[in-house]
Design a protein around this nucleic acid. Structure first.
Lengths: 263, 263
DNA sequence: GCAAAAGTGTTCTCTATACACCCATGG
DNA sequence: CCATGGGTGTATAGAGAACACTTTTGC
């Protein structure tokens, strides 16, 4: 029995001709929840392997726009913070040393119900892929599997499954890039609720950097950037001093992203 | 009269089928001479426009290897320091706002002597291009034009001609990337002669960063990295104190490139 | 009052920067 | 001796890390 409906198959066959061959885009979509950094993954219908959300570039579409489109399709979000970080051009990306998924893809095509030689050929081709990463608000995102996937879920980056192809490597490089970025741009607007405490922000930084930071120094460092506006205190009901709530001054925030943090 | 010989045309026609379609590699090859940062440019046979050395990726070749091959073909050098910095995927790269070279390419094909429809089609296609940059020793490089070019020359980056397509943008991005890199890795081994004075190194940094630096502070900063070995003094014949000569300790240098400069 | 967490202050070290000073060299 | 550029020293300001102290809150 075919995993795809006939209309899904025809839809892809029609679109396929309008894609640039040999090039794809993969998105590392990161979010923050339960004090953990999470990444949006897809689970393939075929053999159940996990992968990054990705797609192809239409012939009349800028590559950046393709990345935005993929992000939008998987999360429903339009996102400003979407960054290209690297292009993976190894010939044997599909035949990663510890990975036979390249072979598995081929075998899976008939399972899915694809029969046209052109389609089989398409998925057997070598693809160069460009990686983008985005930071989104998990609460606002509505994960949508694509037609090849049975599931679309947030997974903590600290406990990841083995991903297909070289997607573990892509994700790893995205996170290195993100940590690096943290030295140059402010972060958090798209990952935190409108109002948050300094502890919330610190936990976010700690989740990204993977290491604890010193409380008082963190506060000073962030406040010195002048991107936060101090609001009312949060009466949590806990037996301790009530922390201030903060929100981002969006003007300062975006100016700082453009200009970078004093370097 | 055709600008290409029949054998050049046939050679390309044969190779063409083995290239990945729609993707190219462009190399920003930088060198240092006369206290100036220079870039290797090619001058097209057709309309005489200047461009970055570039090429295509063979179907059985890693993209990084393609970049190394292009560098080798244009300079005769094998170079370790060759870095991918960005991939340019705009649909209308060839139709840059201030540039009509996309059209010029098409018109030039027949001038060159290409007649096969497949070749004409090849050059009319949209290409996504990945930029690499290298730092090489101009003294060791032997610039070689490719079959499409009439000249291959070092040009100072401070006085550049208008380049074809979006190559000015690519070069600009490479230099920003290089300046950024300067904060993380040591630099100079491939750009300076074996032995050099501290002033030589400083002039190099100033050429890359495009701004003057303080003499005594520069010296301390560099020496603290522990990548330089102090040699004998240079008796230049000038009426002033003789400066020390230095050379790189290659082990420390490459270790530092790998590990980065304390961040 | 007490525990817990927040806000603020202090100390120390390290770095960057600017500039001062003396040294070597050849005319 | 003097002009020129090289090597080293010093003073100051700012950043970052570690930690101490005080304040607020609910029980």
């Amino acid at each position: 029995m075919n995993l795809l409906s006939q209309s899904q198959i025809v839809a892809f066959e029609n679109k396929m001709e309008n894609f640039i061959p040999n090039h794809s885009v993969d998105c590392v979509i990161l979010g923050y929840e339960d004090q953990q950094l999470k990444v949006l993954l897809l689970k393939w219908k075929m053999h159940g392997g996990w992968c990054l959300p990705g797609g192809f570039i239409f012939k009349d579409e800028d590559m950046d726009d393709a990345a935005h489109r993929i992000l939008q399709e998987r999360t429903g979000l339009h996102q400003l913070f979407l960054n290209q970080f690297y292009t993976f051009g190894n010939q044997k990306r599909a035949e990663h040393p510890t990975d036979q998924d390249g072979r598995l893809i081929k075998e899976s095509m008939t399972q899915l119900g694809f029969t046209k030689p052109a389609v089989l050929k398409w998925f057997n081709k070598r693809f160069i892929t460009t990686g983008y990463f985005a930071l989104v608000d998990i609460a606002k995102a509505q994960p949508q599997p694509d037609f090849l996937s049975a599931a679309c879920e947030w997974r903590p980056v600290n406990a990841l499954p083995k991903l297909v192809l070289d997607h573990n490597e892509i994700l790893e490089k995205a996170i290195v890039h993100l940590r690096h970025q943290l030295n140059y741009v402010p972060l958090g607007l798209s990952l935190l609720p409108k109002k948050f405490t300094m502890q919330d922000l610190q936990k976010l930084y700690e989740a990204i950097l993977g290491k604890p930071m010193e409380r008082s120094n963190f506060q000073r460092k962030i406040l010195k950037l002048k991107v936060l506006v101090r609001r009312e205190k949060l009466m949590s009901g806990a037996a301790n001093k009530a922390p201030y709530l903060y929100s981002f001054d969006e003007n300062s925030y975006h100016r700082l992203i453009k200009e970078g943090i004093g370097f």
